[in-house]
Amino acid sequence: MAGKESIRTPLGKVRGLGSAKHGAGHFITQRVSAIALLFLVPWFLISLIGAVRGGYDGALVWVADPINAVLTLLAVGTALYHMRLGMQVVIEDYIAKHGTRNLLLILNTFICIALFATAAYAVLKIAIAA
């Protein structure tokens, strides 16, 4: 670092650590899931609307179809993953209070995982019973 002045704070130098927020990994996974959703979401929207028009029986037949079941799990799983990352940024941006922020971040993770478990249970139950 000779001849080049560091912009790190004295406290940062003592700690010797970078940012602990996994910024690059977050950035990349957010984009990769976005690219997948560009394809999954239009299919899901159009296909789902067709399914709900058939009432309860139509919905059951639609989810039971092997291709629909796999693509639904992919679409819902990717969407939940993407929105957990997105909501995390929103919480980090607006909630400055340490305790509240951590509580909301944990809640965000719990909600997304709970929703995924519910979706996985529902799709697998219908698809395997069919």
Partner: peptide
């Protein structure tokens, strides 16, 4: 909205 979609899937299974 995603929560509503998951609720719909659950209702279909239930």
């Amino acid at each position: 909205g995603a929560a509503v979609i998951v609720a719909w899937l659950f209702a279909t299974a239930a």
